[in-house]
Design a binder for these strands. Structure first.
Lengths: 142, 142
DNA sequence: CGTTGCCTTGACGCCGGCGTCAAGGATTAC
DNA sequence: GTAATCCTTGACGCCGGCGTCAAGGCAACG
């Protein structure tokens, strides 16, 4: 299999494959004409990288998985180093999600306050039955 | 007030102020010596930008707030355009948080599966009372 | 008068993960 | 034969928000 076919089968581009190779993640054998040659194992390896990338992993973080596969394990996450990356990522995700929720709460508060100030100015003939439950917590915004 | 003092009082750098100016966000008057001159209003404006930046707003998204302040309003978020940015941002935050939680769940699942596979291989003399409640949902990871 | 410290503009660097163009060789299709 | 398609390496571009260095002006202190 040549680079174009591999890229197509993995849903990516040849540029990406060459980039991975330059980073030492995707090994390469060459045919007599100088063309890169790949097999099914390379496809599996590549799909492992792509999956992790889709999760938001940096390329370097996929390296343990790649090396695990190359070491002959059936899955890239059966090695301790890969599990460590999973755990570290979970921690980062939790931290990030927490920060984002805090920001959300702040933005939410600002919005409510600003709307209240606006309504206060435009308070002509209104029935004060509660201004409106805008900006609920928990993601139910619409 | 000159650029260095303004930067210090806003907790940022002169480079940042000149950058904002180049983006048309921070207006500039010049003294007779060519130095930039700022007043308290500029500080307020700058702090508005910085607060939004800390929230993760892009510079362009701070523009409505800046213009609102420059239009003479006491707060940058008292204008409809600013409120619209708040709301849009809330939507983006909710979407992002949702995606991250989905990713978290996936990573979590992978971790559990991989650990189970590992333990299965190393299953010598273990008491099967439940492998261990790893990777709880809801951010309580430690 | 020199030194130190602030100011000026201009321009390149960085990060990550590629996109995209260039110039040429190999293969395949007709 | 030749045109179209694949492949090769190399190199610059992009995004956002600045950091950082360069070369020089203005101010203030001793």
């Amino acid at each position: 299999m040549r680079i174009g076919e591999l890229a197509a089968r993995a849903g990516t581009t040849t540029r990406t494959l060459r980039y991975y190779e330059s980073r030492g993640l995707l090994p390469t054998r060459r045919g007599s004409n100088g063309y890169r040659t790949y097999d099914e194992d390379d496809l599996k390896l590549l799909r492992q990288i792509r999956t992790l990338q889709d999760f938001g992993f940096e390329l370097e973080e996929t390296r343990p998985f790649v090396e695990c596969l190359r070491a002959g394990h059936p899955e890239g996450d059966l090695c301790p180093a890969s599990l460590a990356v999973y755990r570290r990522k979970l921690g980062e995700l939790d931290a990030l999600i927490g920060e984002l929720q805090a920001v959300r709460a702040q933005v939410c508060e600002q919005l409510v306050k600003a709307e209240a100030a606006r309504d206060e100015l435009a308070a002509g003939a209104e029935v004060p039955g509660g201004p409106e439950p805008v900006c609920e917590l928990g993601g139910r915004t619409r």
